[in-house]
Amino acid sequence: MVVNLLPLVLGLTAVTVGAFFDVVSAIGILKLPNFFTRVHSVTIGAIGGSVLPLIGVALISIALEDLGPQRFYLVGTSIVGAIFILILAPTGAHSLARAAYTMCQAPRKPLIYDALENMKEGASCR
């Protein structure tokens, strides 16, 4: 039982911290003023609130021996899912933000330096 205590505690900590990140991200997506600031909060939610708890679930299911040998299926699935979300969520947010930039509907409010201004013709819409 002592051997199993470490992954169990680590996993529970990861899941709890992930829930905290998720609450922060949900409040952010509701309260922040425009699209480009909401992207920030969603990426917090994706990495902190999804990748971390999935790794936590994997650790917990390593430790819980009463689930039987099937628990290694859960371990593998959650780790592979964590890797996929780690790679895919920032890419999706990136391509959406780029598309929203060219669409010109979302206000570009806290804009200090515009690197895309010269790259695209006709992209500047005031």
Partner: peptide
């Protein structure tokens, strides 16, 4: 096509998806 970031991520991720 889309931006360079999407392209390089797709090159990495597509074989993983097919294997899964």
């Amino acid at each position: 096509g889309l931006s360079d970031v999407s392209k390089s991520v797709t090159v990495v991720i597509a074989p993983l998806i097919v294997v899964y």
